[in-house]
Design a binder for these strands. Sequence first.
DNA 1: CCTACCGATCGGTAGG
DNA 2: CCTACCGATCGGTAGG
Lengths: 200, 200
Amino acid sequence: MTESSKPRRAQILDSASRLFSERGYHATSMRDLAGELGMQGGSLYAHISGKEELLIEIVNVASQQFDEALFTLRAADMRADDKLREAMHRHIRVVADNMDSATVFFHEWKHLSPEAYARVTGWRDSIDAFYRELITQGVEDGTFRRDLDPRMTAYLVLSAVNWAYTWYRPGGPLTPRNVADSFADMLLGGLRAVPEPPRP
Amino acid sequence: MTESSKPRRAQILDSASRLFSERGYHATSMRDLAGELGMQGGSLYAHISGKEELLIEIVNVASQQFDEALFTLRAADMRADDKLREAMHRHIRVVADNMDSATVFFHEWKHLSPEAYARVTGWRDSIDAFYRELITQGVEDGTFRRDLDPRMTAYLVLSAVNWAYTWYRPGGPLTPRNVADSFADMLLGGLRAVPEPPRP
DNA sequence: CCTACCGATCGGTAGG
DNA sequence: CCTACCGATCGGTAGG
C-alpha cells in the first residue's frame, strides 16, 4: 500500500506522529497538520473528532506494539539471559520501527486526559513488572547473580532500551539486533576485563 | 535564604522549571506562571524579557551543572572503573538535585531558537565524548574488556544515568550514591552468575 | 473537503 | 507591579 493509497485517517495519524514528535503536541497546530496533507484546517474534522483523539491513538498504538512484542515472551521456556536478550531486541525494535510515536509516547503522555493518562501509567507498570519477573526468574534459577535487586535491574534494562529513542537512527548502520546484542553482551557479561587487573 | 527572600528573578525561574517540566513549555502560559507567584501576567516582563529567555536560562543552568560535575573528572588519575562509578554518581546527582530542570532539558530543548539549540547540541556532544574517552582509557589500560565499542558503551552508560529523570524520586529511600553504586556494580560486573550455569 | 467564522487564549506592551 | 489593551493564533463548527 503506497502512502497516497492509505486511508486518509492513517495518513493523518502518520503526519501527526511526525509533527508531534518534532515540535511537540501543543506546538503543532491543526492547521500545520492539515497543511502537511494539503488540506484546510477545518477539513480535518471530517476524519477525526479532535486533536486529543490523535494523541490518544498514537500513544495507544505504541503501547500495543510494546505489549505485543513482550507479552508472548512472558511464558517462554528460555534461560533468563537469552530471554532478556530477546526482550531487549524486541523492545528496541519497536522503538526503532516507530521512532516518531515512541518519542510522542515518552514526551507527550502528560497532556493526556485523566483516563488516557491512567491507561498509560498502567501500561508502564506492566512493562516494569515484565522485566522484574524476568530478572527474578533468572536469579532463582541461578542464571543471574544472587545479589541483584530486580527493581534496580529492571530500571537499568529499561533505561537502555527506552533511551534508544533519543539516538537511534533508522537506516543507519546499526540494526535493532546489533544494538540489542551489544547492550545484552555488556549487561550480562559486564564491562570489566576478566580477570580483573590488580589494583595498584 | 528562604524561598520568599530569593531574588524575584530566581523565584520566577524556579516556578518556570516546575511548570515547564509538569505541563511542557508551550502548555504553560505566562499567566499560569505569574499566578504561581501571585502576580498579573504582564508584571513578569518587569523581570524578564520574554518566555524563551526562561527556557534558555533553565537549559543553560542545567548544562552547566553537568559540565561542572564531569569536567573535573576528565584528567583525574583514577582507574577507569572507579572513574566511571564516580562519573555516574555525579551525573545522577545532578539529575536528582534538579529533577525539574533536567526534565525540561530533556523534553523542551527542541523549542529553543537555533543558536540556543546549537549550544545544547554541542553540550550533548561533549558529554558523549567524555564517556567515550573514559571507556577508551579503560580499554587501553586493561581495566575494561578489549571488545568494547566505546560508542555503544557510552550510550549504555548515558541511558542509565539520564533515564533516571523519569523514575527517581528525591526524598525517597534511594540516594544518588545508592543508584550509582547499584548501576555501576551491575554494569561493571555483569548480571550473569559466575561461574555461568551449564546450558541445558 | 472548503469558506467563513466563532469565542478563547496566547505572548507581549503602554502608561502609570 | 497593575490595568487595560494589542494583534495573532488557537481548536473547533456551520453550512455548503
